[in-house]
Design a protein around this nucleic acid. Structure first.
Lengths: 229, 229
DNA sequence: TTTGGAAATGTAAATATCACACTTATAAAT
DNA sequence: ATTTATAAGTGTGATATTTACATTTCCAAA
């Protein structure tokens, strides 16, 4: 009968972050080049160890801030990975988190300091340990999330065009969407504010910028909501 | 720079199991009455600690077998809980798993040995620590699962009536379903085999028994599949 | 003034979902 | 043998959602 904790094994608990960003065309992840052993010189997720005086969410947040300098980022716990020899140096359990950030916000200096780089998810290099599986699982989770609630808040700049939003959906879901149907669907959600302002970069005509209406978004989300392609 | 694991904190890692069963009428969970400190005498999920030589799935399995005697049960990792003082005795992270079992299969002796008891999810007692949150999250996950793939394989006996399957869905989703629409939908899935045999317990007329067609089920699931009420 | 190129827009057909009520089969009672 | 009580079993039309699809508009640059 378990009545004495002191005989139980204690284990190292790592936290690894899958950091998603979107650069107007492609869904990307931020990876670091390890300058420490094991697997020095290889690409990996940003990670760290859980400390006694913090919970997992806090640890994930700390690790993200360390690399990007950004606070108050959207993060969600993904899964815990525990294969016995997943880290050859020592038995370690890793709790993976995924974060959605606006790719323009990150701190260049920190990125350099960690030899970090943004990769298209479709073109990312092989990662150490079980990090590839973590990324795969995170993408699946993000796809699921997409089907349950509007996304974009976190990954897009405050003002964006319909086309950018569509590209974001397309890059997450990895499929083409008809633009009329997409716009009809998004408009039916009634969560965007159309601004008078136009983005003139993409065409002569220019395309209207939009913002999320956070009030309406929250209300909709509370009601429970479904986006189906 | 993290180049030396040895300075990092090591932590106790618990695994707690939310064990779901279905008794032809209600969705239930299996709880134990703790005969050890802390919180002796209170209701709790079945749990244990991760050992160095096993991974989390194996630990969850071991813990489930300890209480029910059943092997090869459907289990899925739910979430990791890490509030600093969640266990007043010592800093402990808990990885929660949920299991779906056929309620008829469990081992009575073991259940008694642990003072365990099946509770309707709607009538379960207050649990220790953060176990109530775990159960709530597990129910949500189960609901989600229900919307993505057929369930029943794990919770029902091999042969079951349409009405039992409907009751299962109703108890998971916590809402009434029209029986004609339900049957139409299930039949449209084309994953059941209707047997010649009838269950005569529930009515004079008797109702036909069905089995899952595992082949078809797997094929459908691979194609990706959605059940919407 | 013309031109090139992305932005913007609407509808009809197909499909999926929903609401809804009567007949049938059988065991038990008479 | 006949009646009765009870859950099982069955189908359709109305409504909502999803899909497929092509043309016109706007503006900067030439």
């Amino acid at each position: 009968m378990l009545n004495n904790y002191s005989t139980e094994d204690k284990i190292l608990l790592a936290v690894d972050c899958i950091i998603f960003g979107f650069d107007k065309e492609d869904l990307k992840i931020l990876l670091i080049k390890r300058d420490f052993e094991p697997e020095k010189g290889k690409w990996s997720l940003m990670g760290g160890f859980l400390r006694k005086q913090e919970n997992l969410d806090q640890a994930a947040d700390r690790i993200l801030v360390t690399l990007t300098g950004i606070h108050n980022v959207y993060m969600e716990q993904l899964h815990s990975y525990s294969k016995i020899d997943r880290d050859p140096a020592e038995r370690t359990i890793s709790v993976a988190y995924y974060a959605l950030i606006n790719i323009e916000d990150h701190n260049e200096e920190l990125i350099e300091q960690y030899s970090a780089k943004w990769f298209k998810v479709s073109e990312s290099p092989k990662l150490i340990f079980d990090h590839d599986i973590m990324v795969k699982n995170a993408i699946n989770r993000l796809r699921y999330k997409t089907s349950k609630e509007p996304i974009g808040f976190e990954l897009l700049p405050p003002k964006f065009t319909m086309r950018q939003l569509q590209k974001l959906y397309e890059s997450i879901l990895d499929e083409k969407i008809d633009k009329r149907n997409f716009i009809n669907k998004i408009n039916a959600m009634d969560i965007l504010i159309k601004l008078d302002e136009k983005d003139m970069n993409s065409s002569r005509k220019g395309s209207f910028l939009h913002m999320f209406d956070e009030q309406k978004y929250k209300r909709k989300k509370a009601e429970g909501f479904s986006f189906k392609l």
